[in-house]
Design a protein around this nucleic acid. Structure first.
Lengths: 366, 366
DNA sequence: CTGAAAGCGCTTACAG
DNA sequence: CTGAAAGCGCTTACAG
């Protein structure tokens, strides 16, 4: 079956008995390039070139075929560490997020993972559970050459820029800006806010509240700014009592909505900064006996499967989260290292109308 | 400042100008062990031993101090590829899941990540978006020595055992069993089902339906078996018309509940196999004008923040998902390679009572 | 068309 | 107490 059986007797030929190796069967010794070369009767460099499709290699089709068959037969897989040490590339990208439980990141991860695969990279996603210690641990790991680039969508600690720079590898902030940085990719949060407010205004609402995200979050600030701008553009007054800051969680949304309900003059509609908060908002309204959308309309940022099945189904503003992740991957893989400036914003943003928004009850608010 | 300034003039000493290097400042050339050794005036092996806390190394405190300071000064980080090539260990673990959007996995990931950190490992989590191609892509990556072990909580494709074995590294199935495998760690799903049914029975329900997961899913099978066993143990008949299979998604739960509502005799309570399905169940009941828990009680498996904020707040059975992830990590890091047999089940399982369960309306069902 | 050789940055017995 | 040397498994100019 094999044409050239081992040109020169190799001293360590005894460590594997190729004929007995079934592909996929567990065996103790690892298969290396040398094993393949030996069995195929060529030099290791030839095997390497065949694997990497080196255009400089001219090889007889029969020989290539033999090499390929041998690789298959032995179940050979190139050693990533050796390759990485030699080429100074790992073909791995890192993605750092604050919390896996936040469905927003699930969308970003998916987009990033798919794009990474297309470009021949693996994506390694990690989180810190919000613990400072965790961040340092992973920053250290990322700094050891395990990844060729880092997408940072993690917690803002105030030191992330310093840490990212100390890594000495390409990085980009995802879905957030940090003062002093010109390496980021973000969505058009201002536009999303405008669409949300306009949707409510078109339904006839005038007294529109905003449950914002944490003041420290860049996305929250942009959405809040977009809300006030859209209100003003619609000729509506911006009532500071109608802006409440929550923390992007159901519990936070619940508390914020409860606060709004306690006010003298209730809003007829609420624009919530994210779906997680909106979940808590809907429950607070349910608990208070307020009917949605009859008494109060609710709209939130980010569309996801969950939104369509809440009670009532939530009207949302869809933003291209997957594309955000994909874009970040493409930028980090394509653009040059440290000196490259990155600034990107995305377009397709749209309102997904469901059950939670409707015209205000006659005589209310307007 | 430095005591021993470079014993012998090194030929490539010009590539770095250590005095100018600020820690954390971006610079082009990488810092290697040699750079540290050179500047500290010791051999590379000494630096290596200091870093790895080699007990065999006896070194003067002053020298160690000097080495440590130099490492700090240069911002040296050991190269993971080189280390990994030399030691045949990557200190990285892989976790494969089917879908980041499923909150169940978020809990597992968190537990696994935390435990991995404690043991000095990094955890690399990846998913396949359910695409076969994606699985192969990552299996290939995992097989190249990038990870020291693999936790598989991925999609069941029917070939996973074969693929996992071809990886030639320690692996363990997480939260699922596959026929022919004795390497897994799972939760006590049967017990969870019993607690759910017992809770409903204690409230006075007799006509209890089960919205199960996909027939192919191991967890779904165990929960369904647990349901029938608990019903029988409670002296209640198992009506096959009251068991509907869904697919662990809100849409599936919605469809299944709609089917149950169309039946001649409606159940007074529903035990749902997971929270995602329960979200759809609650929406289906809302859409049909059925009040929860007045008309129908709902309980689901797995507790998470979301459950407490659904409308109405969902009664659940909490299972130790985080501990499941942590346990899997510990097993893979501790146990020997291929030949080790793994079989584990967890204990603390409990009902978290919220708004969605109550005694049946008088005259109904019983 | 194919092979020999150097070297990526570490770790680790071993020698002194 | 410290240094010299081999080698992990690859890739890649270079020689023939």
């Amino acid at each position: 079956m094999m044409t050239g059986m081992t040109p020169k007797p190799a001293p360590d030929d005894n460590r594997a008995t190729p004929g007995k190796v079934l592909p996929g069967s567990p065996m103790s010794g690892k298969v290396t390039l040398s094993d393949v070369a030996l069995l195929a009767g060529v030099d290791r460099s030839v095997v390497s070139r065949v694997i990497n499709d080196d255009p400089k290699l001219s090889i007889r089709p029969a020989t290539r075929q033999r090499v390929l068959e041998t690789i298959d037969k032995l179940g050979y897989r190139p050693n990533a560490a050796a390759r990485s040490l030699r080429t100074a590339r790992s073909y791995m990208l890192g993605l750092f997020i604050p919390d896996f439980a936040n469905p927003v990141y699930a969308e970003i991860i998916k987009g990033a993972e798919t794009e990474a695969g297309k470009l021949g990279y693996a994506l390694m996603t990690a989180s810190s559970e919000g613990v400072r210690q965790g961040v340092d641990h992973y920053m250290d790991l990322f700094g050891q050459g395990r990844v060729d680039g880092l997408l940072f969508a993690g917690e803002e600690t105030g030191r992330e820029l310093e840490q990212l720079r100390s890594l000495r590898l390409p990085w980009v902030l995802v879905n957030r800006r940090v003062p002093g940085s010109d390496r980021y990719v973000v969505l058009d949060d201002g536009h999303a806010s405008k669409l949300a407010v306009d949707h409510l205004v078109a339904l006839g609402h005038r007294r529109i509240a905003h449950i914002a995200g944490p003041e420290t979050a860049d996305t929250a600030r942009r959405r809040r700014t977009g809300y006030t701008a859209a209100m003003t553009a619609a000729g509506l007054p911006v009532d500071p009592r109608l802006i409440v800051h929550a923390d992007y969680t159901p519990a936070g949304g619940h508390a914020a909505m409860t606060e709004l309900l306690a006010a003298d003059e209730r809003p007829t509609a609420v624009f919530v900064a994210n779906v997680a908060s909106a979940v808590g908002v809907l429950h607070a309204l349910y608990a208070a006996g307020v009917s949605v959308p009859r008494d109060i309309s609710v709209i939130a940022v980010h569309d996801m499967a969950l939104a369509g099945h809440l009670v009532p189904a939530l009207t949302t503003v869809r933003m291209p989260l997957g594309e955000l992740g994909a874009r970040a991957v493409r930028l980090i893989a394509t653009r040059g290292p440290a000196d490259t400036i990155t600034e990107v914003v995305m377009e397709p943003v749209e309102v997904v109308v469901r059950e939670s928004t409707a015209p205000p009850a006659p005589g209310t608010g307007s």
